[in-house]
Design a protein around this nucleic acid. Structure first.
Lengths: 341, 341
DNA sequence: TTGTAGGCGTTATCAC
DNA sequence: GTGATAACGCCTACAA
């Protein structure tokens, strides 16, 4: 038999309303009654029924804001698809999503967009820039009672309820591990990173280096260049790097610009002698995997990241459930030509 | 504004009961009224509210049977964990799970266990033996109105509503692809399969061969032995195989017995010259990955398989939703030491 | 501080 | 054939 508020009320000889007040900390209950209700609820193992809650929640008007740095970054296409599918699933609960997208790492701009959204918003899914001002902005929202979830990039010391994304350090470790297996532990590595400033990119490189130290003494990093996640820039600096270091046998592409790097390799005709590892599986990367320019790419469940972030918000807003993990870390998977689709 | 049964009833000038009868094909409605209701529901885009349904479903007593060939197969430990977690999540909807486990491929025994369960069961999650008699049994259950889902092994021509599991053929392809990358496309391969009779094992080998033909002319299969998913047998036949074919440079472990194979390799001291690819990541396999005996193993989301199968059943029983895919195929992921946990 | 009652959307059971 | 009504469990406004 399931334990309901009604049943607890009967047992305690009081009304449903009072039990509700106790169980949801709404105050205005005599200490004595409160204690009794809590004891009974505990002993009987009361579990609120999400369906009941969901039904009652319909009377609220729930709006979830989403702000992503997605423009010009095809990785987010799948994230957004996950968000949209979840939106549809939950639309019957009367929950709406307002999605905004921005380009580049302008902190003030991100703050301004957040401000413009905060009026009618019950929760925010944010892909934040790593900056103190954004941290402050998150804390301000939480203070206002808005539920905040960080997506794809965490700000650990902020008051966000939860982070959904990948483990960048382990992503770098995984990249190094697979590169080690493919090169028999010997390689002269050129690293092409997105931005020295981006936290995740830095962490990937650190993870990569960590495995070199631990396992691959014959790996040498011969150069380390930055492409700003831009394909044209990637094309140019990769060409330059390869000409400067003809001894390079492997390239670790840390973030965006994968297509530009590959085109540079192709234009120099050196694809045969290179092992290339990248991240994500956007269409151009898949294309290069098929051409066997890239040997392996590391996949971080973008669709799931999007869907999961909405799940977490939904469970909080509709069911009052706090996320069961502060960090929802998705696995780094290795994709090769055969298991890419 | 959301469209509810009540609203449709008002618009049509009839009662909620009648609308319900039409929308759920319960019969006993005048053709004319039926048509009207359907038209209005369609035009307004009526979407049943799952919360309402869930609440109403509590009055039913839902029992889900699960029958797995799990004994002695640690792969299923994670599958079962997924099932148990889902059970807990859905327990508030008054859905119970009765899980039975069996050992080995005795068709009659599986039929008998199914029969013993079918009394009070609304749905069955079945890990079926590939056999005509099991197909017939599934069809019999469906005839009785029981919702059947196959797990981890499909019987395609049966009347099961849905299959949840992996793509075995692509698993074999992926194994070959990663082996090709690790060996530079040159290998003398020994294959250790679970059972020649198991459909999935056969399909993996076919997938493996398919990529050899397509991509790796310098791969040669020098031997092909069967271990019945038993570690002791695996140990012995692998030893035998390696002694008989000292030219072997790679081993493809198609199914169980991974630990036995690795112990054989270790006992002969030939681990340095071998590339070994396996499936799943049970504890002993992870151990061998850590010892660098196995270079890569292919992972098939066992936890998700278990959880998903319960999801599908729940959505049908409580929300009346047919699964949106007949086959729910999980991806083959490549795990190496760095991304195993 | 507590109780009452109605509504969220769906379904089952009666009565007509 | 159809309609009315009472659940399912929770929440909230209002009355006491």
């Amino acid at each position: 038999m399931t334990i309901t508020i009604k049943k607890i009320a009967e047992i305690c000889g009081i009304s449903r309303g009072t039990v509700d007040r106790v169980l949801n900390d709404r105050g205005k209950v005599k200490a004595q009654t409160e204690e009794l209700v809590k004891k009974v609820a505990n002993e009987l193992g009361y579990k609120p029924n999400p369906a009941g809650r969901a039904l009652a929640a319909k009377r609220k008007n729930l709006v979830v804001g989403v702000l992503l740095i997605a423009e010009g970054n095809p990785f987010f296409d799948e994230v957004i698809r996950g968000i949209r599918v979840a939106e549809k699933e939950y639309s019957v609960y009367g929950m709406r999503i307002v999605l905004k997208s921005m380009k580049g790492y302008d902190v003030e701009k991100q703050c301004r967009i957040i401000d413009s959204m905060k009026g009618e918003m019950n929760a925010l899914i944010l892909n934040p820039i790593s900056d103190e001002r954004i941290k402050a902005k998150i804390d301000e929202l939480v203070e206002l009672g808005i539920f905040v979830v960080t997506l794809n990039n965490d700000i650990e010391n902020s008051r966000r309820a939860c982070y959904i994304g990948s483990n960048y350090f382990n992503g770098g470790e995984t990249a190094c591990g697979i590169m080690g297996l493919l090169t028999n532990g010997k390689a002269e590595v050129g690293i092409v990173t997105g931005s020295f400033k981006a936290l995740g990119h830095k962490q990937r490189v650190e993870g990569f280096k960590h495995i070199i130290e631990q396992k691959y003494p014959e790996f040498h990093i011969v150069d380390y260049v930055e492409n700003d996640d831009d394909d044209i820039l990637a094309f140019e600096i990769t060409k330059e790097m390869l000409l400067k270091h003809p001894d390079i046998t492997a390239i670790f592409i840390v973030a965006g610009g994968v297509y530009g790097v590959c085109r540079a390799v192709l234009s120099l005709g050196v694809q045969q002698k290179l092992t290339i590892i990248s991240f994500d599986s956007v269409p151009t990367t898949v294309e290069m995997l098929k051409k066997q320019i890239i040997q392996a790419t590391i996949y971080q469940h973008p669709y799931t990241q999007g869907h999961k972030s909405v799940d977490v918000v939904f469970n909080y807003l509709v069911h009052g459930l706090q996320p069961n993990k502060v960090q929802h870390i998705l696995k780094n998977e290795i994709k090769i030509l055969e298991n890419i689709n």
